[in-house]
Amino acid sequence: MIRNIYAITERELKSYFASPVAWIVTAFFIAMWGFLFAAIVASGREAVIRPLLNNFSVTFLLAGPLLTMRLIAEEARTGTLELLLTQPIREVELVLGKYISSVVFLMFMLLMTGYFATLLEMFGNPDEGPMLSGYLGVLLQGMAFLAIGLLASAFTQNQIVAAVVTFVTLLILWLSDSLANTVLSGTAADVVRYVSITQRFNDMPRGIIDTKDVVFFLTIVVGCLFLTTQVLTARRWR
């Protein structure tokens, strides 16, 4: 079980680091964060990382779909999925292996932003608690994004379709908060606000970790991974 997942993750990571897409995405976003970081610190004159983490979560709306679009769609297109699904491994192992690799890549990207935190530590006196909880928030939110992207990738052989579907889904989840505040009212607004990712995320960089929010993100992850597994197993249904 563990060994199969590890083998899949390892191969997938090699693929990430061998692919120009991952590097371009990473380079582009580091450059962007650098720019934002400089702008934020210069204008605010405050040693806080919160605005940067907020920005990270927005930019990951774009980066997430690019990181997951390939995962299953590409294998379906080239036929390697036929190889994997006739090997003595379970669908769930395949799904977990792929998912973990994308999370590791997310962590790698987050690690890159550690550079900014280090700068703050060197030249200022930032509050570490909110910084860490903020990172946890970004990680949890990113994990939810990646799980949604993986599910979209399982539905199609076309990477672009997978990326667009993921992006639109994330955008809806992202915008649902403003939707609730402007267009809707009453119970409908409450329901839509409940699924809003913005709402769930906002508190964490302030240093507040609400179990409900953590559970919310993990529920998305588990739900999407379960559905992805079902999509792959569905071909065995009679």
């Binding site: 199969n4 090699k14 036929g79 036929e82 003595p88």
Partner: peptide
């Protein structure tokens, strides 16, 4: 499936790997 090996009509290969790492990957899964 533990008893079977399969070579599909469209050869399932990862073009971004070398033959050696590819076989290594299959070996790990096996």
């Amino acid at each position: 499936r533990r008893h079977i090996s399969y070579l599909p009509e469209t050869v399932p290969l990862y073009t971004d790997m070398s033959a050696r790492t590819y076989l290594d990957f299959v070996g790990k899964i096996r």
